[in-house]
Amino acid sequence: MSTTTTETRAAGPAAPGEPPQGTGLLGRLRSSLQQMLAFVSLIVLFIFFTVANPDFASVSNISGILLATAVIGILALGTTFVIITGGIDLSIGTGMTLCSVMVGVFLTYWGLPLWVGVLGGIAFGALIGLVNGSVISFLGIPPFIATLAMMMVAQGLALVISGTKPIYFTETPGFFNVAMGRSIPGLVIPNAVIIMFIAAIIAWVLLSRTVFGRYTFSIGSNAEATALSGINVRRWQVIVYTVAGCFTGLAGVIMASRLSSAQPGQGMGYELEAIAAVIIGGTSLQGGKGSIIGTVIGALIMSVLTNGLQIMSIPQEWQKVVVGVVILIAVFVDMVRRKRQEST
């Protein structure tokens, strides 16, 4: 019988939402260790850089690292959903910039109130996601191509709408505080970081506690079986890209606030950093597997690496090389671990 190996293991309920790996105490311990692999790497990196340069662990530097994580982190959160469905979203970088520009339009050109500008930016991100998802689901265009096209469209629109010039938030001076204010007295960490963690909690709840999260996993695991199980896969796919778009919009708002301006020329390349963070966090590009906690850790690893290498005065060009190698190692380790798991 093919079940002989598995039947000897003790029974135990799986953690909801997480892909159940092994059962029983030993299995659970092993699977949680694997989950912690990225986390342990983060700690090791942290200790390494602290030893190399004690300034690394200073409060102001850590706060800087967290702030640098905020935008990439929020983009990565949204992309996690997309990648778990087996898709990809290349439009998040320039999409974020377009959202920044739209916030500029709402606040500076139209003089709308601050909160309308913030919510408008997020809503515009949702709109970009809705278009992405519709093109993918209803026109049947592969995600890579659909979002590549959107990447270019968004970049172009950002430039067209802004007239290729930055939009400054002269009408709403308070906008800067959205990302850079310190809402919690006595805490040096700026709002952007707190917003990222709140966004992460929302994403985690969405992915592990809702029907939406379940379908995200099941579409990535086997889209056709999901459809034959009576789930409207196309509709849910559109929703997944739309939700991812909300995170893009939020990242756009944070970006604009941090810079006190909407910079229409930037954004390109952010999508790849966000995708890298998701992958380092253990989400599979094949779909069906992934976690929000992993993505947060992945994003932190990216900025810890960049910041640490900077502090060690390693030239920027070499930083890219290191990050590239880290991505390879992360994916390779993950592959080896999965293969070993499957052979037992």
């Binding site: 159940p20 809702t210 939406f212 379940r214 996993f217 099941s218 086997n222 009576g230 069906g288």
Partner: peptide
Amino acid sequence: LLDRSVADNIALSSLPRLSTAGFV
């Protein structure tokens, strides 16, 4: 869904019934 659990597979078609306001 081969790499999902027995419970996930059994619940797949009935999630709307097994959830409240979208929360499973």
